[in-house]
Design a protein around this nucleic acid. Sequence first.
DNA 1: AAGTACAGCGAAAACGGTTTCGTGTTGATA
DNA 2: TATCAACACGAAACCGTTTTCGCTGTACTT
Lengths: 339, 339
Amino acid sequence: MKAKITLKDIARELEVSISTVSKALKNSEEISRDTKEKVQAFAKLYNYKPNNIAISLKNKRTKNIGVVIPDIVHHFFTTVIRGIEKYANARGYNVIVCLSEESFDKEVINMEMLANGSIDGFIMSLSSETQEKGDFNHLKEVTEQGIPVVLFDRITNEVDCDKVIIDDELGAYMATKKFIEQGKKKIALITTDDYLSVSKARTSGYRKALEESSLGVDESRILKLPSMEMDEKRIKDFLDSQELDAVLCVNEIFAVYSMGLAQRKGLKIPEDISFIGFTDGLLSKYANPSLTVVSQHGEKMGEVSAKMLIDKVESEEEEETYQTKILEPTLVIRDSIFH
Amino acid sequence: MKAKITLKDIARELEVSISTVSKALKNSEEISRDTKEKVQAFAKLYNYKPNNIAISLKNKRTKNIGVVIPDIVHHFFTTVIRGIEKYANARGYNVIVCLSEESFDKEVINMEMLANGSIDGFIMSLSSETQEKGDFNHLKEVTEQGIPVVLFDRITNEVDCDKVIIDDELGAYMATKKFIEQGKKKIALITTDDYLSVSKARTSGYRKALEESSLGVDESRILKLPSMEMDEKRIKDFLDSQELDAVLCVNEIFAVYSMGLAQRKGLKIPEDISFIGFTDGLLSKYANPSLTVVSQHGEKMGEVSAKMLIDKVESEEEEETYQTKILEPTLVIRDSIFH
DNA sequence: AAGTACAGCGAAAACGGTTTCGTGTTGATA
DNA sequence: TATCAACACGAAACCGTTTTCGCTGTACTT
């Protein structure tokens, strides 16, 4: 086991000072050609690599980004992480992932763990419990300490920071309008309670499209589940309780599950009933029939978030100006609707 | 913006030395009741939290784990991360995730980035390129430096370290046997080239089950794709080229896609043709029909890996003894086969 | 009165770097 | 010959902790 070599080791071996070694390795003008060559050769030979921790302590920069998300098994968050990771890595940053598992307490604990020097900034999507509680003090504390935060997807307006979202209202509006254009009359919405910022916006887009049409909103056609967790019984009861010819769901799991129920009842998709979901995941692509979705462009969202964060981290000025980027959703047409 | 407070700040305010503050906060016997109370009260008031980086530098322990995996969008890896994250967090560790994207170079670069002090140990699954090349020097270097490594799922025997796998051969054997028991005769396998350790083992289990039966292996019923990437054309051509009554696939995507093709040909599942895949993801659960799979217990695998790694990191002894844990796969029976 | 014990605290080194600010040597210049 | 700039390097501070060791003062012992 050959331990890591340090500047001190090189200095001792070559009988020069630590400062000289440090400068030589950085190709400083101050050091003679001769010495530089000697030091660099030695460093290469022993595979010297500076200790990141020491550099972090000195620079007060860790080159780590903290990502705190509710869940990692949902395809959307996975793609966001991938986007963040790719972009961050290209700029020399590492990504520390923490899962809040939709719990307020875990979100707080995770942030506290990371906020004491481990990271240069946060990229987060709020846990449902946090959005429900409306308590954002942990975020405020962090921003007050000067640690930059970028909120994506599940955001709040009560915290001053950069934000990245897709236009969820528009997405739902587009989807609902598509149904209407295709002659669907009884259009349902399976969503979650309004405390989730995204669900609220999507519900609003759904309403808007219906209100603009001659159809109007029928409240009994809206199912609000308490969370994004699958609740097979409630969805089944809801779909069994009435006749529908189109269903919009706030995620792909609800949609694919609903399609299965419809098929078991002998309904033809999309003729008898059409479906559109949110999130363009594997499930949508490989479902049978494949599911039309409102794509949230998770990877793009991750990239944009990472760019905003790193730009802020590396900017010298302490401008307290925050922006909210709104990405456009797109409808990915597949076999669960006419086309 | 109130910046973080340090020991030095407290010392200055309270007119004591830094050492005294440090000790007082740790409730050292050395410090008088009075002073301790004063210091602790002050620290609490100003919400003092020790700087992780400084502590890392001092202790040569970061409480960070580096996880390097080929991909994050595959359900299996996602669940493993979740298992790692949960367990590691409970023991006070953070998880730094890096994606190799199946590239040897990225794997090397990521490891190098992390190996210079950022982490206490690695949990990894090899990229396909690494397994194909058979070059494991980056792993060897790291272990030689005394950094513990745990390899999971995609492993190699050329590196001395702890390993966690499921019994892939057994999993494929169980699945194939199930087909045979259900009277299937023409059983195909869709897999990848043997350089992927898991595919090799699975192919071997498939062969074993067939050889044990009266059926025997028909090489034309084995499709070896170059990677885990979806190749719709080759799968379609393969399935179109012959008559089959059962298909085992090394992942759920291949299986679900294949089911779709069969259905479009008018075949009934599972009567005319049955399917089993690997990986118990959302896709399997919500596919139509739902897919029977060999579950790899990703979350468990993550937990076990994290436990092995952290135990090693925290153990004092430098015992160079490594173990390989083999988890049992289980067959999750769903509608794509008889039951 | 001298010695001892101990409580309570601070100085300083250490972790591994970076960076500022000298300082001694050399050769050229006036 | 005295002056000076340039060159090449080292000492030391610093980032924020922890920890060892030594010092001071008080109280107690004999």
